[in-house]
Write a protein that binds this DNA or RNA. Sequence first.
DNA 1: TCGTTCTACTAAATCGTTCTAGAAAAACGA
DNA 2: TCGTTTTTCTAGAACGATTTAGTAGAACGA
Lengths: 356, 356
Amino acid sequence: MGNVTLRTVAEQAGVSVSTVSNAYNKPDQLSAQVRDRVLETAKRLGYAGPNPAARSLRSQRAGAIGLLFTEQLSYAFSDPYSVGMLAGLAEVAEEFKTGLLLIPLEHYDPSHPEDAEPSAETMRQSVVDAVVAYCVDADHPARLVAMERGLTVASTIDIDDDRQKYVLIDEAGAAASLGGLLRDLGHQRVGVIVDSRMDDVEPRTTPRVVRPEDEAQLFVDSRIRLDGLRDALGPDVEVIPVFAGHNSTEAGAAAAAYLLDHQNRPTAIACISDVLALGARDAIRQCGLEVGRDVSLTGFDDIPRAAEVGLTTVRQPIHEKGRLLGRMVLDPEFEPRRVVLPTELVVRSSTGPAPH
Amino acid sequence: MGNVTLRTVAEQAGVSVSTVSNAYNKPDQLSAQVRDRVLETAKRLGYAGPNPAARSLRSQRAGAIGLLFTEQLSYAFSDPYSVGMLAGLAEVAEEFKTGLLLIPLEHYDPSHPEDAEPSAETMRQSVVDAVVAYCVDADHPARLVAMERGLTVASTIDIDDDRQKYVLIDEAGAAASLGGLLRDLGHQRVGVIVDSRMDDVEPRTTPRVVRPEDEAQLFVDSRIRLDGLRDALGPDVEVIPVFAGHNSTEAGAAAAAYLLDHQNRPTAIACISDVLALGARDAIRQCGLEVGRDVSLTGFDDIPRAAEVGLTTVRQPIHEKGRLLGRMVLDPEFEPRRVVLPTELVVRSSTGPAPH
DNA sequence: TCGTTCTACTAAATCGTTCTAGAAAAACGA
DNA sequence: TCGTTTTTCTAGAACGATTTAGTAGAACGA
């Protein structure tokens, strides 16, 4: 039981191993008569079809694509934005009858390169044909292993490497439109809330100002967006970046409270994601301040809830992003190696002129 | 390139194949000296580590668990409730350094058993050690294939089969508490909104009353909840079950609008999920009616948004459900084969006494 | 009738590992 | 010194499929 193989079936059915294999994979290569006999024998023996590992080995294809996700896998599901991307990706996977393997990553700190092995371990083990690297740092060991294995890698951040493919959003344009909006509204002091790695400062929910030497601790897309905001706001505007523990409303609220407690309170708070901004919104109201009048607030992504609470944000075609990533690694007809998706500034009630 | 194997490395390093294998898997079986030499040679040749398919074949373990999901994979991400389960499951997978493979299923209609093959195909192909069957029908071919393959199967619905494991919620108790509440409030006509399969009536968003012969078209958990509600409401209460196209706010709204348009409007609407209820809430308000006074409304699951809008519902420990499912298939120390999780009735403002 | 093509099937090589059993060398105990 | 144990490495057999190249016989055309 459980030890039934092609050979067992072949012997019992009185045919060769190849014939049994063909019965499953190339039905037109044998007579209907023999095929029926084979399948019937298989059923009788409780044979569950060709062993997928053996098949993968021999045919050199896995029937699955891998998804490399920022450090903590369960966080993938905590942000509606990531979930939207996943849904798009899953849609394409489904269309191609391909599995979608979520690959958990160990945290990797570039300042300790000797830890590369454990961080890449799961990527080594994964039976996949291609990989989507979602918000994974350029030098993460898992990414490097995927490349070494010769897998197609599609990335959501721009790495200057011809061997990879890219689906990007116009981060610069997005940051510029947000920054421009705040600048034009006359804000002179802008707090920026960014999420940080899990194993950051202890306790993790304690916010604190991001020092220049901390920048390596930022998630790669947070870094890009922060830089973009700084550029757009220009040198005359004071930017106060603050770490939130991670990408959640709770952490966003704590970080905003910290900023509002500042001796010289910022007149606007820009958050690196809508989820953080929703938390910040709660904190601002808790302080008895009015969002959009006393303090302006912006998010990023345009998740459904943003519209409901009137949050100014930047819309990304997230579902489309997931679909394109999937198509890029699965559809041989899909040629572009690099797609940049447009973003759209959505101004709502959470932003207004800077108070004096 | 790409054709570097253990043997290539062994030859170049002047050791046996087994030794190279040990260098990766059993570092204590060889001298540090030789190990370093081997790994260095591997690096030089661009060897990305043992081929996972071959490893899986030989060692008979995949390093991944499969998730069988109701028909449409991308729907897994559209309901915060499913997402919560996924997060819990992913958490455990991560802990065990195991991948999580989302397996897309073809739709299977029990009345056409000859279609079993295609519906089970992806399950045949998947390289996994165990399977979590989330809301998958008892007789779905993919589930049967998983069993045939001798995989551990953990299920979220109760099937009378000793070979499987179960994490259930107390559906009967949950339905009874909701039904009891509505009955005690004096409601005599209750609409029930249930989600239906993708390939149901065309166009899919058109709601319609569920006829007895349609019941096979219902998702398995919808059926259980509907039956539970009927039981709890008792024979004197008229129950009008209505199909929504699928589990989304839009479909919920359409189904509610259909019910309210009914010649003899129900005084209460019970939805099979919070997502549907949120849509129904919109529709009720659109009709100029007040939720909780003119029409009572209940959901199921207690997603975060339910608290925000005052929706009466039943809370399930969904995150815990995911975690238990994971533990059940991954942790050898975990013995229970059957866990029933408690539910809790959460009464909020969306329910009130039946109007006369 | 003979050569050719087509159909239905098979033998054996191969995919790239891990694992078992065992050998050679080194270390050890008395 | 000699037998025993330990350490370090290796040969070769699985693991369970797919694929290539080929064979026997039927069908075909002239």
